[in-house]
Write a protein that binds this DNA or RNA. Structure first.
Lengths: 194, 194
DNA sequence: GATGGATGTTAATCTAGTTTAACCTTCTTT
DNA sequence: AAAGAAGGTTAAACTAGATTAACATCCATC
């Protein structure tokens, strides 16, 4: 196990003492998942906020027509969870599934209040990362409206070059809100263009 | 001036002592705007997080074609800001404009760290409202992909009946990511249906 | 009460992106 | 090396929603 990357990530926002680190590690847990395994299933209550130590996951939603919509990808140093379900302890709207063998560091629902009580600085930490996540989410909403599918794809490639390499095309299409056939057409166009 | 509604809103999430309330009020400010006035302008740095005491605002983005895209509406007991600009102190991507005469309670950028230092509980407060905002934002992304324009309109009416009454139709169309002409068509369809 | 600005509607034409369906290419697994 | 799965491509027919343009309505204010 190796919590180094989590501690390094946290240290970019707040400073924890050795004692606080011990408390943090005692109240959270490390877990490995295999490619294909589900960390959260639509309908179940999401029990963890999971920090990605290694690997890659997709968060997706199955709509009433049975269509899959990718909400986000999570790679190293990012989070995976159905936050809505986790916070309100109600059934999850989303699935979270591993696209590769994955190592997670999990913050359990029933330990959160204790964690915040023992390490109040964590309030600040989560406030800061939520601010960033919210800003990014708002930006994505506008882009989905103001950009064409081709522009969104180019933007995605530029913003997440690592993810583009690791994830199958049809999932990227889903993330962009288009069909895999249309993404294939866009890619063909881009090749012809240069 | 009447900070009651802000204090009531805050009290739903954390408890402030009388002394803390005094500090809060001394470091923030009340301001009135007229219909049409801009609270934030695209390109300027956003100086405040503003809590809405009364009135109504739109946050919108002008794209490179000059088209307006409404990102959110803010009414009583909600927030208005370009959070990305506010947090990173960089030029705003969005405009925030009053749709009615509006009373705001403003948290200044250069007082935030002092506020957090003097009232650490505010970290928790903002963490909690950001969690909610992020969850809502993620949900909107999925809905924009998985629902038709008509379904999104019905959903909007149901979720924000107050806003639908107060705001011109063409802005609702923009919020839904469709043209005013198409929204008009949808409304006509809905009338014919029943 | 007329003028103008802001809002809303209707209808014809157009297009970005979907659907369907067939086929191709790679990995895995046996 | 054969046989599937899983992923990716192509192309024709289709549709949700955009665009354009003309007209209608509701006001505020001179």
């Amino acid at each position: 196990m190796n919590a180094e990357s989590l501690l390094h990530y946290i240290s970019q926002h707040i400073h924890l003492t050795g004692e606080e680190i011990d408390i943090l590690l005692s109240l959270t847990k490390y877990r490995k998942y295999l490619k294909g395994q589900f960390v959260v299933q639509q309908g179940d209550v999401c029990q963890y906020e999971s920090f990605v130590l290694s690997g890659c996951l997709k968060t997706f939603y199955i709509d009433k027509e049975g269509q899959e919509h990718v909400v986000m990808f999570s790679v190293e140093d990012w989070w995976a969870s159905d936050l809505g379900s986790f916070l309100t302890h109600t059934p999850a709207d989303y699935n979270v599934q591993c696209l590769e063998n994955t190592e997670l560091f999990q913050f359990p629902y029933d330990k959160m209040e204790l964690l915040y009580a023992k390490i109040p600085k964590l309030e600040r930490f989560f406030r800061i990362i939520l601010q960033k996540a919210f800003v990014a989410s708002q930006k994505r909403i506008v882009q989905n409206f103001s950009l064409t599918a081709k522009e969104r794809y180019l933007q995605f490639k530029q913003q997440y070059p690592q993810i583009e390499q690791r994830v199958p095309q049809y999932l990227i299409a889903s993330y962009l809100g288009i069909t895999k056939e249309f993404l294939s057409k866009i890619r063909n166009q881009l090749i012809l263009e240069q």
